[in-house]
Simulated assay, not measured.
Amino acid sequence: MKSGKFIVIEGLEGAGKSSAVAGVKAWLSANGVQEIVCTREPGGTPLAEKMRSIVKDNTDEILSDKAELLLMYAARVQLVETVIKPALARGAYVIGDRHDLSSQAYQGGGRGIDLTLIQQIKGAVLAGFHPDLTLYMDIDPVLGLQRASARGELDRIEQQAIDFFQRTRATYLSLVAQDPHAYVIDASQTLSEVATQIDQQLTELAEQIL
């Protein structure tokens, strides 16, 4: 049986990742993909969702930056091993709302944790597992946070200072530039313009994806 593909949507708050996931799913369906599994990080399994709550929710106890990083990877490994890998093995396509690039950008760039340490953790727990394609939804943090605020109350990470997101964005762009399987989508456009750009990018890569 032909194995499936793992496609990841990355980006800052307010970048329109959910809409992008829906767009990728629609494109895959239109091109004959029968089974599509959508996941999110952190989360995606009952245990991983509990870890997500620890990371996202405001509490009286301050979560240390390294504890946050380790929780991200614990949730990620749980999702990869129990959901993503089995789906790929049976030929399904998996669309992920965030994956490892998020940890490097947010905990590495945003929090300032040494990227070498993050790479060591990644290598130890993911053992070379990586997406077949990453679409990075790029947006200025000011605009992104305006959009996120319009959705409702911001979570613990979304409440960080703007310079945190500036560092995160800069790290994202640097990492994407080094990844031959990652592409930048201009998420500052209208929803219809972004959808068109995603469709065009996927069509250009159709031979690699399908």
Rank of each mutant, 00 (worst) to 15 (best):
M1K: 10
S3Y: 01
V8W: 02
G11Y: 03
G11C: 14
G11Q: 06
E13C: 15
E13I: 15
K17F: 13
S19N: 10
G23F: 04
G23I: 05
A26L: 12
A26M: 09
A26I: 07
A26T: 08
W27D: 02
A30W: 01
G32C: 12
E35F: 01
T39M: 09
R40G: 13
R40P: 14
G43R: 14
G44N: 06
T45E: 11
P46L: 12
A48V: 11
E49N: 12
S53G: 09
V55T: 10
E68Q: 11
L69E: 01
L70F: 12
L71K: 12
Y73R: 08
Y73G: 01
A74G: 07
A74Q: 05
R76S: 13
R76K: 15
A87D: 00
A87T: 01
R90T: 04
Y93Q: 00
Y93F: 01
H99Q: 15
L101T: 11
L101H: 06
Q104Y: 13
Q104E: 13
Q107E: 11
R111P: 03
I113W: 03
D114H: 01
L115W: 01
Q119P: 00
Q120L: 08
I121R: 02
A124C: 09
F129G: 07
H130S: 08
D132S: 04
D132Y: 02
L133P: 03
T134G: 04
M137E: 11
D140R: 14
D140G: 13
D140M: 11
G144W: 10
R147A: 05
R147L: 02
A148I: 06
A148Q: 06
A150M: 04
A150K: 11
G152N: 07
G152S: 08
E153L: 13
L154I: 11
L154D: 06
Q160V: 05
A161I: 09
F165C: 10
R167C: 11
T168L: 13
R169E: 13
A170H: 05
T171F: 07
T171P: 11
Y172R: 15
Y172C: 09
H181E: 05
Y183N: 08
Y183W: 13
I185S: 04
S188W: 03
Q189F: 06
Q189W: 04
S192Y: 04
S192C: 08
E193H: 03
Q197C: 03
D199V: 03
D199H: 14
Q201A: 06
Q201C: 15
Q201F: 06
T203V: 04
T203W: 01
T203E: 12
E204T: 07
L205I: 01
A206K: 14
E207N: 04
E207H: 05
Q208L: 03
L210D: 00
